[in-house]
Design a protein around this nucleic acid. Structure first.
Length: 567
RNA sequence: GCGCCAGUAGCUCAGUCGGACAGAGCGUCGGACUACGAAUCCGAAGGCCGGGGGUUCAAGUCCUCCCUGGCGCACCA
């Protein structure tokens, strides 16, 4: 939970200051007649890729070119003449290229951000983008009829990290798992369990073609036999199946929950689909849609007029036999989410469900809610590689790696990093050998090593006195070398990186950012010693690496990856 | 056929509201350990951003038409 007071961070402060100064400059220029009366366009202040283009650059003059009917460079000159940057330590301003205004800030400015890192500690990086609005992230939600696979694992890593990012960004976040414990697949599950039950009792029965063929349910049935023996063999079919289903669902849910907790994923809520049916919520959503005139009957089924909401075709709500479809239950589920007061509802879905997004949004609109409040992150599928060969994942051939096996084989840290380092909408090639390898080919250790390295420095003999001294030294008079400032520069970006990752719902941004911070730390480390004979300098550098450690720690924590003190 | 995602260095991928000379990791080649951890660092080579057309001061990014790969288009979930 984010209960801390979040202050404005350095980069944000400078951006805001420059922005206001520029707006003032436009107003002054208009007042003096140098510019015609124009509205201030929606310009932005960017950090140039090239260092030689300054610390911040502004495209305002180019955007004014057309409305002010003048050349961008001329407008830039006028603006610069009328510019007063006030308290911001601007060293120089230049007009460059097609009309950019580039700002050069005193190179030591970044050091002003370091004390905040140290005092905020584990809260450094928190921002108030969410303004305590309630957000829910629903992810994995795999059928409780089997074990979790690589695709689910990707969803778990993405969903959990995204939830942590949103929490850091100032949302009140809840993690939820939707248990599909109702409907036809559960009936099918019951039949499959019954078949395995009979087989275990030595009867000659065949598994239905569309049954659950996985070996895991054989184990489940064996557990059932341990508990109840053959007492259900002669029971009425319904009783037998119900008993098997209830037992198996409970067992599977626990297995899934355990695997996820090994993967460091913990849910706030496990939501049962069946409960929606039991409590009449599914029937209620059908009634609401009827009342709103969004339904009609055809061929004995009840349809939702999805086409009225821009979709290609309508959707069945109640089948000919009167049983609601999955879509109807899901509509009820989403309505329930909004009724629970969430302002933002995020679902992490596999690419094979993307067709469901528009349907869900349409029914949300039909029910009178804002469909924009539903955000769906679609993740592309995972391809598994082992020994340079693609491993075809299929339950039938047994080429199926479960989340538990993945954790066992490559470990949670590496697995999570590999899932998070790519954007969700890119196919993921998961190289098991690479994830396992403890070499420099493996990017996970690069970041963890940076953290361990800092810890190692802070463990050095004599560092205690340096740390005490660090309370007093003024780093801005001691740190000025390129590698020092480059590291500090990136550290003060952390809050903004959190905002961006939250806004774009992109955990991979955090992974890449941390990799960069680790790189800057390593470069600094190789260029200069932290502990030197100069105690003031040592103290200042201890402060810098401590700040780096905080950023690495917080970032890794968000991604659910350990920050080891030794490796 | 229609829709969604992807196509960027040898490989795997970033690229913010359209901005300046297109970035990283790995791999390749050449260097750096008698002081804090070499799982590291420094340097080099490597590009028709899938292709054509368009929009504009400016396009990897926006529009359009193609090509390739993945995934959808059920009274399944």
């Amino acid at each position: 939970m984010n209960g801390e007071v979040v202050t404005m961070h350095l980069v944000e402060k400078i951006r805001k200051g420059l922005c206001e100064s520029l707006e003032e400059a436009v107003k002054k220029s208009i007042a003096s007649g140098e510019l015609p009366p124009v509205e201030i366009p929606d310009f932005y202040i960017e950090v140039p890729r090239e260092k030689q283009h300054g610390d911040f650059a502004v495209n305002l003059a180019m955007m004014l070119a057309k409305p002010a009917r003048n050349s961008p460079r001329k407008i830039a000159e006028i603006l610069v003449d009328n510019l007063n940057t006030g308290t911001i330590p601007v060293e120089s301003v230049e007009i460059a290229g097609p009309g950019f205004i580039n700002f050069y800030i005193n190179p030591l400015w970044v050091l002003e951000g370091i004390p905040a890192v140290l005092t905020e500690g584990e809260n450094y990086g928190r921002v108030n983008l969410g303004k305590n609005k309630k957000a829910q992230v629903e992810f994995v939600s795999a059928n409780p009829t089997g074990l979790l696979h690589m695709g689910n694992a990707r969803g778990a890593a993405l969903g959990d990290s995204l939830a942590s990012i949103l929490d850091f960004a100032g949302y009140e976040v809840q993690r939820e798992y939707y248990i599909n414990d109702a409907g036809k697949q559960i009936e099918n599950f019951g039949t499959s369990l019954e078949t395995r039950y009979f087989q275990q009792l030595g009867w000659n029965v065949d598994m239905p073609e569309d049954g659950y063929h996985g070996d895991d349910i054989i184990d489940t049935v064996k557990l059932f036999l341990d508990k109840y023996g053959d007492k259900y063999a002669s029971a009425p079919e319904k009783d037998r199946r119900d008993a098997l289903i209830e037992f198996a669902l409970h067992e599977k849910k626990n297995a899934i929950s355990n695997a996820l907790s090994q993967f460091r994923v913990k849910y706030d809520v496990w939501f049962s689909e069946q409960s929606l049916h039991d409590e009449g919520k599914v029937a209620a959503v059908v009634e609401q849609l009827k009342e709103r005139g969004c339904t009609y009957v055809q061929d004995g089924a009840l349809w939702f007029r999805a086409a009225d909401f821009g979709l290609e075709k309508d959707e069945v709500l109640l089948r000919q036999n009167g049983i609601p479809t999955y879509f109807t239950a899901d509509a009820a589920y989403h309505m329930n989410k909004f009724q629970r007061g969430f302002n933002t509802v995020i679902n992490i879905w596999g690419a094979d469900h993307h067709g469901h997004v528009a349907r869900m949004k349409s029914v949300i609109s039909a029910l009178g809610y804002d469909s924009e409040a539903l955000q769906v992150v679609i993740m592309q599928l995972v391809r598994l590689y082992r020994g340079g060969e693609m491993v075809r994942m299929s339950k039938r051939t047994g080429q199926f790696i479960t989340l538990e096996e993945l954790v066992e084989e490559v470990g949670t840290d590496a697995a999570r990093y590999f899932f998070i380092m790519r954007s969700a909408d890119s196919h993921l090639d998961f190289d098991l050998d690479l994830a396992k390898s403890q070499t420099n080919e493996n990017p996970v250790y690069y970041i963890q090593y940076a953290h361990a390295r800092i810890c190692s420095i802070l463990r050095q003999p004599g560092v205690t006195e340096v740390k005490e001294k660090a309370e007093q030294v003024d780093i801005s008079s001691l740190l000025y070398r390129e590698a020092e400032l480059a590291l500090a520069r990136r550290l003060v970006d952390f809050p903004e990186e959190i905002s961006l990752a939250a806004g774009q719902m992109s955990p991979h941004r955090v992974a890449r950012y941390l990799h960069e911070v680790a790189g800057l730390l390593h470069s600094f480390y190789n260029a200069y010693r932290v502990i030197t004979s100069d105690s003031d300098l040592s103290a200042a550098r201890v402060k810098l690496v401590k700040a780096a450690r905080i950023v690495l720690q917080n970032g890794l924590n968000i991604l659910g990856i350990n920050a080891p003190e030794k490796m």
